[in-house]
């Protein structure tokens, strides 16, 4: 095996130009594909961070007694998944509304009667923040006697996550396309290499070399190129990511949003994937070339 490696390395040196083209091609497609992946990972992250801020508003029927209200608070807090329920009286709600709409406060002042209901603002535990759980929770709270209506950003969250889901399906599609394109390109450059070395291959066969003996170095070359190209692509992506995030980070420092790169394990698997691409490209072109 060591000898095969030596031959592979020698061959790569002798065919530097083609080898470089292959490596750069792989690097570019990995760069593009993983830039997409990184974008989706961060968008998904954003979604979960927003979900953390999800609250549920529980509006009460008018004229609920103080005792019933307290009872309701305990009951809401007793529902699994609920973190905290804070009472907001309709007066308080009106003040908030005025604060939010300073230009129309005059309009609000003119109201004879406060039209707003009393409410609880309910914060949720992490596990309860997906849309199915939210649905379930809201139904349980809705069932309580003094509760008029439960409201949460249901529609909005669902839409956003379905958009993200759609994007990530598209992302997988794009990833698959890039995978195929890379395999195709690797197969073609290796075919060029094979073609430029057909005399050598023919001579090797004539002196009694087995196909295995001839092919193994090519496979190694493909895999080395795959691994090298992927590594270069990832490093380029990291440099891009780093300059981008250090550019944006100050404005994101509020903690609302943090950009992140692939975890090490994912990087390792991407490089492994690149190696497989190299192998596969080689397999295809060898299959054609060696009839």
């Amino acid at each position: 095996m060591k000898r095969f490696f030596k031959r592979a390395i020698n061959d790569l040196r002798e065919n530097q130009f083609l080898a470089a083209i292959t490596v750069v091609t792989i690097a570019l497609s990995i760069l593009i594909a993983s830039a997409f992946a990184l974008f989706f990972i961060n968008a998904g992250e954003l979604l979960t961070q927003w979900q953390k801020g999800i609250r549920m508003m529980v509006y009460l029927k008018p004229d609920v007694s103080e005792a019933a209200r307290l009872d309701t608070k305990f009951r809401i807090q007793g529902v699994a998944g609920v973190q905290e329920a804070t009472y907001i009286s309709k007066e308080e709600a009106m003040e908030r509304l005025k604060g939010q709409m300073p230009h129309h406060s005059a309009l609000l002042e003119n109201l004879k009667e406060n039209p707003l209901p009393d409410a609880f603002e309910v914060t949720l535990e992490a596990a309860a923040r997906d849309s199915v759980q939210l649905q379930f929770l809201s139904e349980r709270i809705q069932a309580l006697e003094p509760v008029e209506e439960v409201e949460y950003g249901q529609q909005w969250i669902q839409r956003f996550s379905s958009v993200i889901n759609l994007f990530s399906i598209a992302g997988y599609g794009i990833g698959a396309l890039f995978f195929m394109a890379t395999v195709f390109i690797v197969a073609n450059t290796i075919r060029l290499v094979l073609y430029s070395r057909r005399d050598e291959i023919e001579i090797m066969r004539l002196v009694g070399a087995t196909d295995r003996f001839i092919k193994i170095p090519f496979y190694l070359e493909g895999m080395i190129q795959g691994a090298l190209g992927t590594t270069i692509g990832l490093v380029a992506l990291y440099i891009g990511y780093f300059s981008l995030s250090s550019h944006f980070q100050p404005s994101l420092a509020s903690g609302l949003l943090t950009l992140r790169f692939f975890p090490v394990l994912v990087c390792v698997s991407i490089v492994a994937g690149g190696t497989v691409v190299g192998w596969l490209g080689c397999w295809i072109s060898l299959k054609q070339f060696m009839k």
């Binding site: 070395r197 005399d199 050598e200 001579i203 004539l206 009694g208 070399a209 087995t210």
Partner: peptide, 23 residues
């Protein structure tokens, strides 16, 4: 196909055009 290398190793061939690997 797999036995062709075995056959070829029985031979030492000096080709009309040498067939040396130029690289």
């Amino acid at each position: 196909q797999g036995r062709i290398p075995v056959l070829r190793r029985k031979f030492g061939i000096i080709f009309q055009d040498y067939k040396l690997i130029l690289t």
